[in-house]
Nucleic acid binder design. Structure first.
Lengths: 354, 354
DNA sequence: CCACCTTATCGAATCGATTCGACACCGTGT
DNA sequence: ACACGGTGTCGAATCGATTCGATAAGGTGG
């Protein structure tokens, strides 16, 4: 529609009666060009409706595209129901936007847990953030490494040549477990996020655990076990309120003698589901059962209930990721970062009943 | 870190003992290259760890970058609390991902209602989706037009040279208003989404209305007035549950005689806030006051309440946007599309009291 | 056996900028 | 008057592919 003989830098240079190289200097703001000349070039550009140097051509020469990939493990509609994912990306863009770098969404779909190589292959990329996916043997990851695209993995996996930004999943969960132990709880159960995204739900077996994809899920399980030893865990098919409710019901809809006195959910979303399950079963929280989550997200619709949770600095984590990406783009190799978390006691945990 | 002498197509060609042009043909899957030769090239590429043609160089020649911008009106953390925005982008990526096209997030920030020209200028773009922002005199928009980047505007504004994809905002709201009129309501009030993003909240004056930025907000107001004539409207500072609650309280926390018998919120998020406000004021819904929303999003935490709302096909709208973008990228000029909406009656509207 | 057509490969131009070294010009210090 | 340092501009090479027209090789029909 509008592609007929658009002006190029050469056109502008001709009009301003300077060499293309000089015009380029004028646009890059180099001090090696006389102010008067710069004005002339800019004026010529304005007259011609020239919008500035073509980003693609510039990228070719400078080896920077201004595009950073965000590899998302599911389709957007699911991934972004999780406030953690949104806050994370928010932190990333907060740092990257002022640098003229944009985040390119590379979602997977219902079947695949991330973008395919075909999706990646045609797209320019200065770096990639492996955000809500965690496979260690991902063909997409291999592709990026062949291309020399540096990768930042958020919350895992830990790999050579991949910058790791994460949190103390295990320590945080252990602290939470100690809080519960201090309240007298002895029968504790876990509602786990998916160990891998294959639609499985239900009790977590040793075999299942051995095939887990996600480092953080494993670590959060270990944190509870550090305090209580082996505990029953039920996995949801996704990290959502609905699956949390389902898993919660599986754990709570049993004779009182068998019922855990505290349920540790691996995310606030799932914890909200557990609260629902408890409510439907007529169980009072925290009198009959304590419920805790992980993340520390705002769930305003839960009010006046305040969830006991392990709060992580999600937006700050995003900023750290953004800064790591910025360094990588400039050719440096940033350090791995593991951020602190802390237990935030709300109204959903209390003394063990009985 | 890993950028030392990465192989190029020329390297591969040399190794396979063919001309660069032939190697290029081999990768593009052209039928004009002998299968044996293709194999040889691919083998050479594999040996050298060549990841395929450089997307940037390819883009320069083919004038396609595989990147489509998504201009977001606020920072991500706010924009994506709205399920409508997420579903929309989900639909867009559903169509675009298989085409090897990615969505580049171009968010604004707290102050600005969209990305700046500086942010855009360095980034390659085949097209842009003007998603959750709606200014008519946006410098970013002007920049894109100078660059010849085609734009799809979702829900407005309607401009020449910009493809419009929207819904029947006005008709939908009018249908909803008729539903309320049929239930005997006469005193109706509106909780409006921001008319412009300047942090203002409170009663909507004529002056304020004249300076409105967003087409859909205006239209939804007109839809109600089509049935009830001028009605009081209170604007929220953002499209969120909290602002809905605030506006709702402003409307409902008055003597019963002055109180509207029905509140039409311009989004489900804000309607949820109004429900909260009613609850806190001890008003029963729908016995004391009816509440309706707009969008038809899933708000599972509202259960068992089902919101009466104007349901729009958000994901499908996203797909339509995706298809329009795909056409634009291929150089065609797609038609504008206005999608249908329908009133979905839930449990939050009932006969007018008294 | 030759003309002709097809098929596979190649050379060279091109996309639109950036960048480095060369060069011309000007003023200044001796 | 001459050499010199500094400033501003320019030419040409380069980034890494794609693509079109040309060409060579191979095959078929008369």
């Amino acid at each position: 529609m509008t592609d007929r003989n658009r002006p190029t830098l050469a056109t502008v240079a001709a009009r301003a009666e300077v060499a293309p190289s000089t015009a380029s200097l004028a646009f890059s703001g180099s001090s090696r060009v006389a102010p008067a000349t710069r004005e002339r070039v800019l004026a010529a550009a304005a007259e011609l409706g020239y919008a500035g140097p073509d980003p693609v051509a510039r990228s070719l020469r400078s080896r920077r595209s201004g595009v950073v990939g965000a590899m998302i493990g599911e389709r957007l509609a699911y991934a972004f129901t999780d406030p953690v994912a949104v806050q994370l990306l928010d932190g990333v863009t907060e740092v990257l936007s002022p640098l003229g770098v944009g985040l390119l969404l590379l979602p997977g779909d219902a079947d695949r847990q991330g973008p395919t190589v075909d999706q990646l292959a045609h797209v320019p990329l200065d770096a990639a953030v492996y955000a809500t996916c965690g496979l260690e043997d991902d063909p997409a990851l291999a592709h990026l490494q062949r291309r020399g695209v540096p990768v930042v993995a958020v919350d895992g996996p830990r790999l050579d040549d991949v910058v790791f930004i994460g949190i103390h999943d295990r320590r945080g969960t252990a602290d939470l477990a100690r809080h519960l132990a201090g309240l007298g709880h002895r029968r504790v159960a876990v509602v786990a996020m998916p160990l891998r995204l294959d639609g499985t739900r239900g009790p977590v077996t040793a075999a299942r655990r051995a095939r887990a994809h996600y480092r953080d899920v494993r670590e959060r399980l270990l944190g509870v076990e550090e305090v209580f030893g082996p505990v029953p865990a039920v996995e949801g098919a996704s990290n959502s309120v609905g699956e949390g409710e389902r898993a919660g019901r599986a754990l709570l809809d049993v004779p009182a003698a068998d019922r855990p006195t505290a349920v540790v959910a691996q995310s606030d979303l799932m914890a909200a589901g557990v609260l629902r399950a408890a409510q439907e079963l007529g169980l009072r929280v925290p009198e009959d059962v304590s419920v805790a989550g992980f993340d520390g997200v705002e769930l305003p619709w839960l009010a006046p209930v305040r969830l006991t949770t392990v709060a992580q600095p999600t937006t700050e984590k995003g900023r750290v990721v953004g800064r790591a990406v910025a360094e990588l783009v400039e050719g440096r190799r940033p350090e791995d970062v593991v951020l602190d978390v802390h237990v935030s006691v709300g109204t959903t945990t209390g003394p063990a009943p009985g």
